[in-house]
Amino acid sequence: MERIPILRMGSYLLVTVQVDMHDQLAQQLQEDLAVKIVQTGARGVLLDISALELVDSFIGRMIGNIAATARVLDVATVVVGMRPAVAITLVELGMSLPGVQTALNVELGMELLRDRLEETVFNDHFPE
């Protein structure tokens, strides 16, 4: 079966969506990612959607679900690379992806995740 690859980069997981996803493929990714998070003990997920020319309500919901599932597993998700036309359309559709952290590109997304991780480590060492 066709699957979207999930790459491990140190303590992060990188998912680059490069195909026009049909609904089952999007659903499969949600499940695979949750399993992979637990298997690898990843600290963050970077979801790169720069190749996606369309995010409809189904794919938008998948993005929200991935972020929510990761959060429940104590893992931060950053969605990177959303195209401007996709962002405009998504908002008009009625989805502003509340609770989903975004960044313009992979580098900035990585920085965000790193900052968050350092913050967590700092708070663990110096609890209030």
Binding site: E53, V55, D56, F58, I88, T89, L93
Partner: peptide, 17 residues
Amino acid sequence: SIVGLTKLVTAASELAR
């Protein structure tokens, strides 16, 4: 336009589903 195209394709995707 790219925005017009994206909006139409997205609407088509919703209605086809």
